[in-house]
Amino acid sequence: MKKILLFIIILFLSVCFSANPFNAEKEQNNDAEIKKGIASYSTVALRNLSQMQLKLRNRISRLTRKIKKEKSVKLIGTIILIAFFYGLIHAIGPGHGKTITATYFLSRSSNIRTSILFANALTFMHSISAIFVVFTVNVILRSTYSKSFAGIETISKKISYILIILIGIYILVKSILNLINHKDRKEQALREDLRTSLAIGLIPCPGTTIILLFFMSLKLFWLGMLVILFLTLGMAVTLSVVGIVSILFRERILNILEGTKFNIELTSHILEIIGAAFIIILGTLLFLTVF
């Protein structure tokens, strides 16, 4: 367990606080002028993340162009390995429903297997939506990405945010009823978890869309699909870590409270209600951003 924790800490905090490995000298000079504060850390972190992503993406495109000239299993293997790491890092940045995932698993009793399933369902839905967008733009609308993507993305965002709000309301009502009736929520929990993850994942990932269109432009559709698969798996790993960390955190808190005068069952129900309320508020705020 300690090793897992150490890995997670290194993964997230090194990204937050390390210097840019690709442009160290220049960044050090610039960062010296950033005042200490949350914004400065997030600037360095986001800059590091984006530089890593750019470097990995450029390597994918360079190797893909090479593959056009020489077919090589080794090259394909390298590309999908890079795609996996790209997905892993891509999902660390802002987005991909980490807030909702963290809130979801902080607020309700769950297990590691469920969180992994949740993460995979969410990220695969996220990528399937992106593939659907590419198909819609290219085959049905016969339009351009730049012209059509924004419209399709807005519609799917609206649907996804409404679903998130509805799921939040459903969980809230159910949690209140469980509290009143002293019921355990474990029955049908997995179905609820899957519904939530699929609703969040409904928004197409623009990054995936661009990558798939890039492969299609080089007439390498199936390699593009393979790359998307591994990229999605990478994103799922990151999101699974989010879920697992949240579950561990919740368990630790409840363990500490167990020896105190706190009523664990009541605390658990209250956490669930707060989590559901937070999901509703977040869904509403997101929905308002679409207009």
């Binding site: 997230f12 802002p94 990054g207």
Partner: peptide, 18 residues
């Protein structure tokens, strides 16, 4: 620390660089 890092990075949903 990890939980707050996660929430901090994620509070603006679905908008990282593409």
């Amino acid at each position: 620390i990890i939980i707050f890092s996660l929430l901090f990075f994620s509070y603006s949903v679905f908008a990282h660089p593409h």
